[in-house]
């Protein structure tokens, strides 16, 4: 399995450098926790890792090759869970999930696996309009299990989740890591992942930005 790493990363928000000289390295089965105060750039770093934005300087590489060179390949091996759940109220739970599963090449079985992984089986037919925030969050997380990928990028995944759902998430991450998958999670809440490494963005903050 490959290594996912970055070095000399700089991220600018408007004119201000949010962080500089940031490096990270994730191997198969690893979990990396990003933590730091608000505005330290956790979300920005995750979006750089997903390839949604390009770093102001520095490089992110998968197996040594810059992710920008093979954008489509990087998209295929990455699942990104942002702050927003990407759930369409007009569609039912299963319609939402099977769209994303099919889009990433997973079949109907994938969608079903996603539902069971996050306890949404009973809600399959329900229109997403009636879901609570926690249920919507679980539907977003179900995309991870519905269409497997090597790299999971998650931004504050535990927001609005109840205790049982957090346990389901931890189990899913453990299973993912067991198969050699990687996970990078931005969070300020200690979610008790054993053997997870910590990256504090404050070490790379640019204190006296221009």
């Amino acid at each position: 399995m490959a290594r996912f790493g970055g070095d000399g990363l700089e991220c600018a928000r408007g004119e201000r450098l949010v962080f500089a000289g940031l490096g990270f390295d994730v191997g198969p089965g690893d979990a990396l926790l990003l933590e730091g105060r608000n505005g330290s750039g956790k979300t920005s770093l995750l979006r750089l890792m997903a390839g949604l934005a390009r770093p102001a300087a520095g490089r992110i590489a998968w197996d040594g090759a810059d992710i920008g060179d093979d954008a489509e390949g990087h998209r295929a091996r990455t699942r990104y869970i942002g702050h927003l759940d990407a759930v369409k109220p007009q569609l039912s739970v299963i319609e939402n999930l099977s769209f994303w599963a099919a889009l990433h090449g997973g079949g109907a079985a994938g969608a079903q696996a996603g539902l069971t992984a996050f306890g949404l089986d009973t809600l399959a037919r329900a229109p997403a309009r009636y879901l609570s925030a926690g249920q919507r969050r679980r539907l977003a997380l179900a995309r991870l299990a519905a269409a497997p990928a090597a790299l999971w990028l998650m931004d504050e995944p535990t927001i609005a989740l109840d205790r049982a759902s957090i346990a389901a998430l931890i189990a899913a991450i453990a299973a993912h890591r067991a198969t050699g998958g990687m996970a990078v999670i931005a969070t300020n809440v200690d979610i008790g992942l054993d053997g997870a490494r910590l990256l504090s963005l404050e070490d790379f903050a640019v204190a006296d930005g221009p």
Partner: peptide
């Protein structure tokens, strides 16, 4: 854009 689907679509196989 507002419900987050756009960034997920941007990360789909389609350019």
């Amino acid at each position: 854009f507002e419900d987050g689907s756009l960034e997920q679509l941007a990360l789909s196989p389609a350019p």
